[in-house]
Design a protein around this nucleic acid. Sequence first.
DNA 1: GCCGCGTGATGACAGGTGTCACGTGGACGT
DNA 2: ACGTCCACGTGACACCTGTCATCACGCGGC
Lengths: 201, 201
Amino acid sequence: MIRLLLADDQALVRGALAALLDLEPDLEVVAQVGRGDEVVTAARESAADVCLLDIEMPGLSGIDAAAAVRRELPGVRSLIVTTFGRPGYVRRALDAGAAGFVVKDTPARQLADAVRRVHAGLRVIDPHLAAESLIDGPSPLTERERELLTHALDGAPVATIAARVHLSEGTVRNHLSAAIGKTGASTRSEAARIAQDRGWL
Amino acid sequence: MIRLLLADDQALVRGALAALLDLEPDLEVVAQVGRGDEVVTAARESAADVCLLDIEMPGLSGIDAAAAVRRELPGVRSLIVTTFGRPGYVRRALDAGAAGFVVKDTPARQLADAVRRVHAGLRVIDPHLAAESLIDGPSPLTERERELLTHALDGAPVATIAARVHLSEGTVRNHLSAAIGKTGASTRSEAARIAQDRGWL
DNA sequence: GCCGCGTGATGACAGGTGTCACGTGGACGT
DNA sequence: ACGTCCACGTGACACCTGTCATCACGCGGC
């Protein structure tokens, strides 16, 4: 019997996944959480074997949660189950110690298999995403560029961004100009969107 | 026995919801589709009573699918089940003939109840969203403003947008300026993001 | 030591952007 | 017929932005 923990911020999806996985005779959902920062304690208390983690969650992202599980509970394996097939996410998830990466539009029956393989010590990675991840390569952005792009995501003017990060307006424009070049965009908003699509933020 | 059709572009979520709802003794999932433009034919062939529709789907949005169901199959009721609680969506969904509107982070056990109420001829609307929808009121944007904002979503420069819609650059700037005023934003990207958040696009 | 690189900053310049005034025309309601 | 609203356009103006050159500092690698 494989003991599972589910982490997803959407209660309906969480409950539905639990119903789906509980149908399998060798799987048992022993814990459900809606926040990333509750994963480790819930996994410890429920003695879970495998954690299914969404990425977009309040408190702590699924990737960071996987890293925390890796650090705090070395025997427990993490499987990322996410909506967005951002190439950059795959690499970051694996670096964080996740054992698998599956997108939410894979057929439902394959999920149980993925769980079993992860539990058996294998790695499960969506093949399509693995290819994209290799093509794109790692993020070319520096830490500052990444940070400034996240602030540019909502379309704020440069002056606002500069105030938020306590930097000179000129410096902000320089960093963003570099980011625009690296993403192949022509405005900072476009650059921010591209970087987000690739999982660089 | 209430016969259900599920429409969601994420196969995993679709399958999981099916597993969850099939647990209820009086509910039966008789069809599953991943595209909005397959809803009507699948509902007709499977003789469904209630359609659960996600909004973001390829082919046709869940809202447009609800309108099509209303038109083609008058006896069938639609329940929108979506990730995003955009206030503007609620009004548009009801105008399109949907009988209910639920967000995906409602507790799983409430979904079956919502289905039963919709089937009984009642209307089910997330109370929190209903309030927000009333506060915001309907979209103040004109059709052109709405269209131009969608093109501004990815941060494209004005010249690109003007070329895409075959308009003068000056006209595009005038419309976007009006949209910026109506949204309370200070750049077109910010205006686009605000409008999207409110379900005005 | 020196080089490369990230970070922070300044100044200058061309071009993009938001705003406003103003004009035209068509659709719609009264 | 008239007013109102929307769409579309032009021109002008101030301001914002993206780019580039140039400087300085700290850090790690060969």
